[in-house]
């Protein structure tokens, strides 16, 4: 199959992800209590989800050119993604409040199916497959890029603690919908932060910018962890959110600067991000079961602080102009 054919097939495979989500709701409705099938279905769904974000960024990299335009395009894209990540938990929160814990996943499956069909339509946002210009050994041969990937991994690991701890606190408070509203507020803060970031001109070194954003993130999450009132913790997280999208923009731009533009570069960053989130979810879930939500959230903040420290330690490689 040629590359264009594969790209057309990917969104169609995504319909299989929607089917896996539907199977989970059926299993829950049938009273299935064993975690194993849910975990297997989750892994299947994740494997089939089309990489819409990476595809969109590859599109922008090809269409907007480099420099200020690409920074602005990525800021717009990060803000959009955060807006959707605002609406997502909000919808989940509203549906769980209105109709219980099964409907949110049903709605997710329906939207995913619709998104896959739109992506598969001719001329829509299927992965562009822009080959880019990494060296023979690929982007991983660039030392600064490996530093960046480690930072992205640590950041997403730390941030992965938020979803599970906030959901646990909301469920404990007998108001699971609150988790949706708080995660939505976090993403809304992030969207606004991303838009503002794209309009600013930045003069300090990239490592300094990223370290500052990570320290702010760590401080905000630590504060939210020790704030006993759930609503107030949500306000703290909304404010903390303002630095999330800027750090994502900075990561994607640094990746392009260090390893050259293209889907491979963007995909590595995405992969590091998703690996961190996966580990963050799993570790936090285990820790919440044993120690409650506060300690795992503080641990997430500590990981972010360590990431800030790591950027500064390796700033010579990180600030390289690249190839």
């Amino acid at each position: 199959m040629d590359r264009r054919g594969q790209r057309a097939v990917l969104p169609v495979l995504g319909l299989g992800a929607a089917a896996a989500l539907l199977a989970m709701t059926a299993l829950a409705l049938a009273g299935g209590r064993d975690p194993a099938p849910y975990i297997a279905l989750c892994a299947t769904a994740g494997a089939l989800v089309p990489p819409a974000g990476a595809a969109m960024r590859a599109w922008w990299a090809a269409a907007a050119g480099g420099g200020q335009n690409l920074e602005r395009a990525y800021s717009l894209d990060a803000a959009t993604e955060e807006t959707l990540f605002t609406a997502g938990p909000l919808l989940a929160g509203l549906t769980v409040t209105a109709a219980g814990p099964v409907l949110p996943l049903l709605a997710t499956a329906a939207l995913l199916a619709a998104g896959c069909l739109l992506l598969a339509a001719p001329g829509a946002g299927a992965p562009a497959g822009e080959p880019g210009r990494p060296g023979p050994a690929g982007p991983l041969a660039v030392p600064g890029f490996r530093v960046l990937l480690a930072i992205v991994l640590a950041t997403s690991l730390g941030l992965g603690a938020i979803d599970v701890t906030i959901t646990a606190r909301a469920v404990d408070a007998r108001h699971p919908g609150a988790a949706g509203y708080i995660l939505a507020a976090l993403s809304l803060g992030s969207a606004l932060g991303g838009l503002a970031w794209g309009k600013l001109r930045h003069r300090s070194r990239p490592s300094t910018q990223l370290a500052c954003l990570l320290v702010a993130m760590a401080g905000g999450i630590a504060l939210a962890a020790v704030t006993p009132e759930l609503l107030l913790a949500g306000v703290v997280l909304a404010l903390t959110g303002t630095v999330l999208a800027p750090s994502a923009v900075l990561s994607y731009l640094s990746a392009e600067r260090l390893a050259g533009p293209g889907a491979e570069t963007s995909t590595w960053v995405n992969t590091a991000w998703n690996a961190g989130v996966a580990a963050g979810f799993a570790l936090t879930g285990l820790a919440v079961g044993r120690a409650g939500p506060t300690a795992p959230m503080l641990a997430g903040a500590a990981v972010l602080l360590a990431a800030a420290f790591a950027v500064l330690m390796r700033r010579a490689a990180f600030d390289e102009p690249g190839n």
Binding site: P11, G14, L21, M24, C42, A45, V49, P50, A52, G53, A55, M56, T80, E81, L84, F85, T86, A87, G88, P89, L91, A92, G93, V96, P101, P104, L105, A107, T108, A109, L111, L112, A114, G115, C116, L118, L119, A121, A124, G125, D163, V164, T167, P176, A179, G180, L183, S187, F281
Partner: peptide
Amino acid sequence: AAAVARLSFGMAGLSLLL
């Protein structure tokens, strides 16, 4: 097209946890 797909990504995490 990317927006509709990513809206479902935004819902998936919390929906699965719940």
